[in-house]
């Protein structure tokens, strides 16, 4: 069993998660309802209720390095079923933001996918699936991912070769630009 030294609680970390999520984390009494309903537990290193406990105990490094943050599917089961009305999925999201800002990416393929997706939106104004696949393969070096699906999708006319033009493309690009300039935590 893994043990954590509770005297090393990082109070600033606890406060930051609370203020960015607007949730009162002290009310979590470890009933485990969130974990019971979480479909991703099999793939997690820490279950979602363990993440909640680690946050309460101020174990910043353990939380921000957890692979679970990157694998949470935001399915809202935990939020819907928490008896203390904690928006648990939001807490997971906030920790994921903090992990990203701190430079962690313990599930690198997931981060590369997210980055490729947003690059595609910044460039075209819309998600362009064909371009996204190519960008993802290039950046991740995982050439063979899903190549088996491309012929099926192409044959059914589901992967247009060209992005659809959005006139407001520049407006969308400016959203990203201003976001980067602003250094917003949200």
């Amino acid at each position: 069993m893994q043990t954590f030294d509770l005297t090393t609680a990082d109070q600033d970390f606890i406060a930051e998660v609370e203020s960015r999520s607007h949730q009162n984390l002290k009310t979590c009494y470890q009933c485990g309802n969130c974990t019971a309903g979480c479909p991703y537990t099999f793939a997690y290193d820490y279950s979602v209720s363990q993440i909640m406990r680690l946050i309460q105990a101020g174990q910043k490094e353990a939380v921000l390095q957890s692979r679970s943050l990157w694998l949470c599917g935001s399915c809202q089961s935990c939020t819907t079923r928490c008896p203390n009305l904690i928006d648990v999925a939001l807490v997971m999201d906030v920790c994921r933001h903090m992990a990203r800002e701190a430079g962690y990416a313990t599930e690198r393929a997931v981060k590369v996918f997210v980055d490729s997706f947003l690059k595609s939106v910044e460039r075209h104004g819309r998600a362009y699936e064909m371009g996204l696949m190519v960008a993802y393969m290039t950046r991740s070096g995982r050439i063979f991912t899903d190549v088996d699906l491309a012929p099926t999708a192409l044959m059914r006319g589901k992967l247009p070769f060209k992005p659809h033009p959005v006139q407001g493309r520049e407006q969308v690009a400016r959203i990203f630009e201003r976001f980067r300039q602003g250094g917003i935590n949200g």
């Binding site: 933001h97 997706f117 819309r126 998600a127 959005v166 407001g168 407006q171 959203i175 976001f179 917003i184």
Partner: peptide, 25 residues
């Protein structure tokens, strides 16, 4: 008219203000 991407799940996993802006447009 001239709709754009809502940000989908990738945007909210990065930042909620960015995600909301892509939708709010």
């Amino acid at each position: 008219e001239d709709w754009s991407c809502c940000g989908s799940s990738p945007a909210h996993t990065v930042n909620h203000v960015l995600s909301a802006a892509l939708s709010a447009r």
